[in-house]
Design a protein around this nucleic acid. Sequence first.
DNA 1: TAGATTGTTAATCGATTAACAATC
DNA 2: TAGATTGTTAATCGATTAACAATC
Lengths: 218, 218
Amino acid sequence: MKSFKISEAVIRRLPIYLRFLNDLSLSGIQTVSSQDLGEKLDLNPAQIRKDLAYFGEFGRKGVGYNVDYLIEKIRHILKLDKPLNVALVGTGNLGRALCNYNMYLKDNMKIVAVFDADEAKRGTRINHLTVQPMRELKDVVKTLDISVGIITVPAQEAQTVADQFSASGVKGILNFAPVVLRAPAGVRIHHVDFTAELLSLAYYMDDHTEDKSEGVFE
Amino acid sequence: MKSFKISEAVIRRLPIYLRFLNDLSLSGIQTVSSQDLGEKLDLNPAQIRKDLAYFGEFGRKGVGYNVDYLIEKIRHILKLDKPLNVALVGTGNLGRALCNYNMYLKDNMKIVAVFDADEAKRGTRINHLTVQPMRELKDVVKTLDISVGIITVPAQEAQTVADQFSASGVKGILNFAPVVLRAPAGVRIHHVDFTAELLSLAYYMDDHTEDKSEGVFE
DNA sequence: TAGATTGTTAATCGATTAACAATC
DNA sequence: TAGATTGTTAATCGATTAACAATC
């Protein structure tokens, strides 16, 4: 048994591989090479082979990778082969949109509870879920065995919610609020920062378009 | 006049700096050091100084950075000092949530047109905007001088929409669909991949919590 | 002045890519 | 077998961090 440190960059690519492999599987394609994957996903084939090789020898030399086998392996690596319960806090437009997003189901991840700080929203229904007040958070996380929290509250409330999630025993947080959050060791935070993505996009407009990465300054 | 290649990593941090500086400015704080910024944003102070130094000498030795001056500079670097018009395609839950998101205004970026492939949705109102059919896209992009497109359609339609955006003269695309998109040179694509963020979060659950970056495999 | 903090160079660290022997 | 493609090492590339002279 060997022990590796797997870099974050590698782990972040695995869901990209998984998603495309699922498409291939649905199209009835049985085998894929790192070459094929690289072309479709805009990545270097050597990088893909190296990423996968951290976890085992999943391919066959001269042949490529069996699509369904690789799907199974990646799902196992990412721990998507067992159900993962998710709680969401913040039932604004974005929070409600995510609750309606149905993709979680097919990956064994599922939003099982929804909370809002606004007591007036208590009892409101979103899909099959009923909005609960924040003071229930800790109990519900324990009872329903929730391990991931999603934050879709305004920026100024996000750190408080992150703290409440951490205290309640959640192990991962997906933050949509446009603010850098902190969590204690043992709680991992991923940040979906679409406002930053949009603002940084502005940099590449106009005069930077001819040459993708050159900026001119005095 | 010098010419630099500014790395993507640097550009992606600028909006993070900008956001926090705006908070400081609103709190009436006039001066900030790279030390302060680093602590709050969880970044190395040397990295922050280096990032800023690519674009000029914005700080004062022994003192730090003037908050409002730095805001002005970063806004200029990111080209947020002139208005940028944005079009959105796909009026599902997520698309409507983004239209209602009001932050664009204060950064001179504004969604000025909304489209949907479903002709039945034509004329539907979202806030002050009226949903238009896709065949109007090219004309509207030209007429309203739109330079950025947001994609919030299902994965299987996203590449088609990206192609239509590119053909219409848009220079940047923010894609929310869970699929890798391609665009011709001169059109930059940023990807907001929250499904991938969520799936990769699963990897860090349980046994990985003691040591943040160690994975154990046979 | 003494203390603080920048701007910048050099050192380090880590991630990507090329190359190729192994082998299907 | 001949052609293809993996797994893996070595080379390259790029990004982060440490250190410190300059100077406010």
